[in-house]
Simulated scan of single mutants.
Amino acid sequence: MHGPMTSGWLLMALCAVTGAYCLVRMRRCTGDAREAAGGEALMGFGMAAMAVPAAVLTLPSWHWVLYAVVFGAAALRAAWALRTCRHHVHHLVGCLAMIYMAAAMAGPGGTHASHASAGVPLLTAALVVYFTAYVLRAGLRLAPVPTPAGAPAVSAPSWGAPPEMALACRVSMGVAMLAMLLTL
């Protein structure tokens, strides 16, 4: 992606760690939660690979096609999974955003050359609005809720199980997606 190398490395590290945590979470979940964790792991690793600074690693010109194929297959899987779980809407939007970014980076010189004179493309703006709303909504769910006086204290679950960690991973990947879209 475009931008300073330091922020590219930090973005790559954030996405890789998030993807790794989602793999660990996937091993401990079943059913729809396992599928969601798998989709989030794929998204984390895909975003990490896309965030590697271009000055460091020169990839062949066809590598963006590979991104589009992988995330196209993941988008089809997410669309199919919508039958049972509405959380897959977010996975579908994320996969489509990755396909869009891959297509945009496949342009001449890896730039958004076709949109340079038109300003920010409408689809980029729509994705920025979606991911901003998603991050804010998920972030608000992370905010602590005061417990009423006399209510029993809730014990903390084990390291791999807290739903707050899964939500924090979703927030971090949403922020990373925003950063990638803004530098597109």
Rank of each mutant, 00 (worst) to 15 (best):
A51L: 05
V145L: 08
T124P: 05
Y100T: 03
H88D: 10
C22E: 12
L10F: 15
V56F: 12
A48W: 14
S7F: 13
M98F: 00
G8K: 01
A54Y: 02
R27K: 13
V24R: 14
R83V: 07
Y21N: 04
L140S: 01
A33L: 10
D32A: 09
L142M: 03
E40K: 00
V154R: 15
V145W: 00
H90F: 01
T124H: 03
G110L: 01
M177R: 10
V171P: 02
D32T: 12
R83A: 14
P162Q: 01
L92I: 06
R28W: 07
G107S: 13
A68S: 14
G139C: 02
H2M: 01
A125R: 11
R137K: 09
V120R: 15
G38P: 08
M105Q: 14
A13I: 12
L182C: 11
L66K: 00
A179H: 10
S155K: 13
V145T: 12
A106M: 13
R27V: 07
T147K: 14
A55H: 01
H115M: 05
L167E: 14
A33H: 11
L59R: 15
V171H: 08
G139R: 00
P152E: 12
A48Q: 11
V128A: 03
V24F: 15
A143K: 06
H63D: 09
L181E: 01
G72N: 09
